[in-house]
Amino acid sequence: MYKVLIIEDDAMIGDMVTMYLSEEGFHVIRKANGAEGITSVSQFDPDVILLDLMLPDMDGLALCRQVRETSKIPIMIVSMKNKVVERVNALGAGADDYMCKPFSMHEMSARVHALIRRSNLYLKSSANTRQVSEKAGGSTTAVLEAVLDIDKKITLNPNTRSMRVHGVLVETTYSEFEIMKCFVNHPGRVYSREDLLQTVRGFDSLVTDRAIDVHIANLRKKIEDSPKEPKWIRTVWGVGYKFVY
Rank of each mutant, 00 (worst) to 15 (best):
K3H: 07
K3P: 03
I6M: 06
E8A: 04
E8C: 03
E8K: 04
A11R: 11
I13L: 11
I13K: 03
G14A: 14
V17N: 01
Y20N: 06
S22C: 10
E24S: 10
E24K: 11
G25H: 14
G25Y: 11
G25C: 14
F26W: 00
H27C: 09
H27M: 07
K31L: 06
K31I: 02
G37I: 01
I38Q: 07
S40A: 13
P46E: 01
V48N: 01
I49D: 00
L51T: 01
L51R: 01
L53A: 04
L53M: 07
P56K: 05
M58W: 04
L61H: 13
C64I: 03
R65N: 07
R65P: 00
R65M: 06
R65E: 09
R65Y: 04
R68E: 06
K72L: 14
K72A: 10
I75L: 11
K81M: 15
V84C: 09
V85P: 02
E86F: 14
E86G: 12
A93D: 01
G94T: 04
A95M: 06
D96S: 10
F103W: 10
M105P: 00
M105W: 03
H106R: 13
M108S: 03
M108I: 08
S109H: 09
S109I: 05
H113Y: 12
Y122C: 06
K124F: 06
K124T: 15
K124R: 15
A127E: 08
A127C: 13
A127P: 09
V132T: 12
V132R: 11
V132G: 14
S139E: 15
S139M: 14
A142C: 13
V143N: 02
E145T: 15
L148D: 02
D149Y: 12
D151V: 15
K152C: 15
K153V: 14
K153T: 15
T155N: 03
T155L: 13
P158Q: 03
N159Y: 06
T160E: 13
R161M: 13
H166F: 14
T173K: 00
Y174F: 07
S175H: 04
S175I: 02
S175F: 00
I179R: 00
K181P: 00
C182F: 04
R189A: 09
R189H: 08
D195W: 01
L196H: 02
T199P: 02
V200I: 11
V200S: 02
V200W: 01
R201E: 04
G202M: 10
V207N: 03
D209F: 11
R210G: 13
V214M: 13
I216G: 01
I216N: 02
L219D: 06
I223R: 02
P227N: 14
P227F: 15
K228M: 09
K231E: 09
W232L: 15
I233M: 13
T235K: 15
V236F: 10
V236H: 09
W237C: 15
Y241T: 02
K242G: 02
K242N: 12
F243R: 03
V244K: 14
